[in-house]
Amino acid sequence: MEFDFLSPLETDLIIDLKRLSSQHLSSKVVFHTQNDFPEISKIDIAIIGVSEYRGNQSQTEEIDLSNVRRELYSLFPGNWSKTIADLGDVLPGNSADDTYFAVQKVVSKLIKNKTIPIIIGGSQDLTYALYRGFDDLEQMVNLVSIDNKFDIGKHDGSITSESYLSKIIIEEPNNLFNYSNIGFQTYYNSQEEIDLIEKLYFDCYRLGEICHNISIAEPVFRDADIVSIDLTSVKSSDSGNLINFMPNGFNGKEICSLSRYAGISDKVFLLGIFNHTGSIQESPLIAQIIWYFIEGIHYRSNEYPFGSKENYIKYTVPFEDEDIVFFKSNKTDRWWIEIPFFVNHHNKLKKNTLLPCSHDDYLAACNQEFPQRWWKAQRKSIL
Rank of each mutant, 00 (worst) to 15 (best):
Gly88Glu: 06
Ile84Leu: 12
Lys105Asn: 13
Lys105Phe: 05
Pro77Cys: 06
Ala96Phe: 09
Val106His: 03
Val107Ser: 05
Gly88Lys: 07
Ala102Cys: 11
Tyr100Met: 07
Thr83Tyr: 12
Asn94Trp: 05
Tyr100Asp: 05
Asp86Leu: 12
Asp97Gln: 15
Ala102Glu: 09
Thr99Phe: 01
Val90Gln: 03
Asp97Ala: 15
Asn79Arg: 11
Val107Cys: 08
Leu87Gln: 08
Gln104Trp: 01
Trp80Gln: 10
Phe101Trp: 09
Gly88Ala: 14
Ser81Asn: 14
Asp86Met: 08
Ile84Cys: 06
Gln104Met: 04
Ser95Asp: 08
Ala96Pro: 07
Gly78Trp: 07
Ile84Phe: 11
Asp89Pro: 00
Tyr100Leu: 13
Tyr100Val: 06
Asp98Pro: 03
Ser81Ala: 10
Asn94Arg: 14
Phe101Val: 10
Thr99Met: 03
Val90Phe: 00
Gly93Gln: 02
Pro92Trp: 00
Asp98Ile: 03
Asn94Gln: 15
Asp89Ile: 00
Asp86Tyr: 08
Gly78Leu: 05
Tyr100Trp: 15
Val90Asn: 00
Phe101Ser: 15
Val90Thr: 04
Leu91Ile: 08
Asn79Gln: 13
Pro77Glu: 03
Asn94Lys: 15
Ser81Leu: 13
Thr83Pro: 12
Thr99Ala: 04
Trp80Thr: 11
Asp86Val: 09
Gly78Ala: 06
Pro77Gly: 02
Thr83Val: 14
Leu91Val: 06
Ala85Phe: 12
Ser95Gln: 04
Asn79Trp: 11
Tyr100Ile: 08
Gly93Arg: 00
Lys82Ser: 12
Val106Arg: 00
Asp86Gln: 09
Ala102Trp: 03
Asp97Val: 10
Asn94His: 10
Leu91Lys: 13
Asp97Ser: 14
Gly88Arg: 04
Gly93Ala: 02
Leu91Ala: 09
Thr83Ile: 12
Thr99Arg: 03
Asn94Glu: 13
Leu91Ser: 07
Gly88Thr: 05
Ile84Ala: 07
Asp98Ser: 13
Asn79His: 13
Ile84Thr: 06
Leu87His: 06
Gly93Cys: 01
Ala102His: 05
Phe101Met: 10
Pro92Asp: 03
Ile84Gln: 04
Trp80Leu: 08
Gly78Ser: 08
Val107Asn: 09
Lys105Met: 07
Val107Gly: 02
Leu87Asn: 07
Val107Phe: 02
Pro77Ala: 02
Ser95Glu: 09
Asn79Ile: 14
Ser95Pro: 02
Gly93Tyr: 02
Val107Lys: 01
Asp97Tyr: 12
Gly78Glu: 09
Leu91Asp: 03
Val107Gln: 02
Ala102Leu: 05
Lys82Pro: 04
Gly88Val: 06
Asn94Gly: 14
